[in-house]
Design a protein around this nucleic acid. Structure first.
Lengths: 143, 143
DNA sequence: CAAATAAAAGATATTCTTGTCTTTTATTAG
DNA sequence: CTAATAAAAGACAAGAATATCTTTTATTTG
């Protein structure tokens, strides 16, 4: 469904949301450990997400990644768009570039519904809303 | 959502279903042209699908690919499983190997529903059911 | 200011997917 | 039986995604 980059991105931003409370910043090592991802790889991903304003970062001692009110309110759909583009939301299930209402592939209508469900779910899910369950260990970000 | 291999596979098997009527066999070139796929690539894919009994094939003059009653009745879900395995139906949205009811990722429950919708849709869609709309040019397999 | 810290940036390596070409095998028609 | 046909099989190539390492820049603390 999503690329590895996107999976790590979502996990990392949710992790940061839980760990970065009252001004605390989270370092790459802690993030990589916390979501069980390759350290250098998630570093690259966060670099990019930071440029795209999906997360905040500060260099130097006591630096690291964190969220503010704005980034906390970003949705998983925003993360998916930032990493994988919008093909998940608008691409054809059979890979046709021109699939549309007027020139549909055989499963166009079924996929339209499914894609809509996926998008609604992801638009509705805000980064900041997962911290409680994580803290209570009702949900998990690594194996 | 699906790999290129899977997209081509679905398009090819649907194409063969439409073209291979009363005993006629469809050749690789015609298939590649008909679904706008790389010729050698779809050849490899069909080779594999043939081994897996998702389509029938015969070598030599007048040979080619075709369906019988059994393969016509295979579902798109069968094709997806044959090419991409079952990660589409059972994998974790965030890539966790161990995501489960007892150790769910943060979006486990939402994804369970979506995956179920996708699977039901694909299980219900049989290869043989798309020919009429294709013939009427109501649906398309290439750009 | 100097040293330490941590992310940013740039370069490189590895693996997997996708795509291509060549040789072999099975089948048919003459 | 021979030649032609078409898929099967095997080998190889290109590209994209994933992963790693090194150098640079910004920031903080002493």
């Amino acid at each position: 469904m999503f690329s590895k980059t996107c999976e790590y991105a979502i996990r990392a931003l949710i992790f940061i949301a839980e760990k970065s409370v009252n001004g605390r910043r989270v370092g790459i090592k802690e993030i990589a450990e916390g979501i069980e991802s390759p350290e250098y790889f998630i570093a690259k991903i966060l670099q990019d997400l930071s440029r795209r304003q999906m997360v905040k970062s500060i260099k130097g001692p006591n630096g690291g990644f964190f969220h503010d009110a704005e980034t906390l309110n970003k949705s998983l759909a925003d993360i998916v768009r930032a990493t994988d583009g919008d093909k998940v939301f608008s691409g054809c299930g059979l890979g046709l570039r021109q699939c549309s209402e007027t020139r549909p592939c055989p499963i166009h209508n079924d996929f339209k519904i499914i894609r809509k469900n996926i998008q609604e779910m992801l638009e509705h899910a805000k980064i900041g809303t997962f911290s409680k369950d994580l803290a209570k260990k009702l949900t998990f970000l690594k194996n």
